[in-house]
C-alpha cells in the first residue's frame, strides 16, 4: 500500500527543515568571517574565536553559567524524578491536583512572571541575590521539565520486576536503586540534560533573580546583542550550539545502544525461560 513519500510531503519536510536550520547555519558560517561587518563576506578566518577567548568578562560569565547550570540541573533532576514518581505511583493524596498543576503550569508560564515573582520572594525573605538565587530559580522551573520527561518513562514501566524484588525481601529503597533507577535512567539523563540546557539558555529569569557578580552568559550576550551584531557573538553562539548538538547526539546514541542491549537481554531471558 505505502509508496515512497509523496511530493507534497517531501516538499513540506524540505521547507520545514530549511526554515528550522538555515538561520543557525548562516550564524555559524558568518562566525568564520574575516570582516567585522557580519553580513559582508570577506574571507575565512578564525580570529573571532581568538578574540572571544581573550574576552575575560565573557569567560567569567560562561563560568558562572556553567556552575549554575550544573548545580541547578542536578538538584532539579533529583526533585523532578521524585515528583514524577509521586505523580505516577502515589495514587490519590490530599492536594494532588494542586501538585500536578504546579508541575505543569511552569511549562507554559511566561518567564517574566516567574522571574518577577521569584525576585519578589527573595526580596521578601531578605536573601542577597547572586549565584544561589539564580540557581534556585532555575531549579524551580527545570524540575518541572524533568518531572514530565521522567514521568513518560515511568508510564511504560513493567512493575512486576519491582514487585518480584520486594517479594523476595528487597527493601523499597534498595529496590529503587537496583531496579527502578536503571530502567528509567535514560529518562533521568535526558531530564538532566534538558534542565542543563534550559539553565544555560535562560535570560529573563536570570536577569530578574541575579545580583552583583553573577552575570550569566545569556545576560552578557544579550547586552552585547543590543549594541549590534558582532562576529565575536557569532563565535560564542557557534561554540554553544556545537556543545549542545554534540551532547544531544552523544546522549541519543548512548540511549539507543542501551535500549538495544536491554531488548537483547529481554529476548535472551525469554529464550531461556
Amino acid at each position: 500500500m505505502r509508496k515512497g513519500p509523496s511530493w507534497f510531503n517531501l516538499t513540506s519536510l524540505v521547507f520545514g527543515f530549511a526554515f528550522l536550520y538555515l538561520p543557525i547555519v548562516l550564524l555559524v558560517i558568518y562566525s568564520f568571517n574575516e570582516s567585522r561587518l557580519v553580513t559582508v563576506w570577506a574571507g575565512f578566518s578564525t580570529k573571532w574565536y581568538g578574540e572571544m577567548l581573550r574576552n575575560q568578562q565573557l569567560l567569567d560569565a560562561a563560568w558562572v553559567t556553567a556552575r549554575v547550570a550544573f548545580t541547578s540541573a542536578t538538584i532539579a533532576t533529583v526533585l523532578g524524578t521524585i515528583a514524577a514518581l509521586v505523580l505516577v505511583r502515589s495514587g490519590r493524596f490530599l492536594g494532588r491536583t494542586l501538585f500536578s498543576g504546579m508541575i505543569y503550569a511552569p511549562l507554559v508560564m511566561p518567564e517574566v512572571i516567574l522571574g518577577l515573582s521569584l525576585l519578589l520572594l527573595f526580596v521578601a525573605v531578605d536573601q542577597a541575590r547572586g549565584f544561589w538565587t539564580v540557581m534556585i530559580a532555575h531549579t524551580t522551573f527545570s524540575m518541572c521539565y524533568v518531572a514530565v520527561v521522567v514521568q513518560s518513562r515511568l508510564a511504560g514501566f513493567d512493575r512486576s520486576v519491582e514487585e518480584a524484588a520486594m517479594d523476595l525481601g528487597c527493601p523499597p529503597f534498595k529496590t529503587f536503586f537496583a531496579i527502578t533507577l536503571p530502567i528509567i535512567l535514560p529518562g533521568v539523563i535526558a531530564g538532566w540534560m534538558l534542565a542543563f540546557t534550559l539553565s544555560l539558555d535562560d535570560l529573563v529569569i536570570a536577569s530578574f533573580t541575579t545580583g552583583p557578580g553573577a552575570t550569566t552568559l545569556p545576560m552578557k550576550i544579550y547586552s552585547q546583542v543590543r549594541l549590534g551584531v558582532t562576529p565575536e557573538i557569532n563565535a560564542v553562539c557557534t561554540v554553544l550550539v556545537g556543545v549542545v548538538t554534540l551532547g544531544v547526539i552523544a546522549a541519543s546514541l548512548v540511549t539507543k545502544q542501551q535500549e538495544a542491549r536491554r531488548q537483547r537481554d529481554i529476548r535472551r531471558a525469554e529464550a531461556q525461560g
Binding site: 539558555d201 550576550i221 548538538t245
Partner: peptide
C-alpha cells in the same frame, strides 16, 4: 533546535 539556545 529546541535544545539550542532560544536567545541564539
Amino acid at each position: 533546535p529546541f535544545w539550542t539556545s532560544f536567545l541564539i
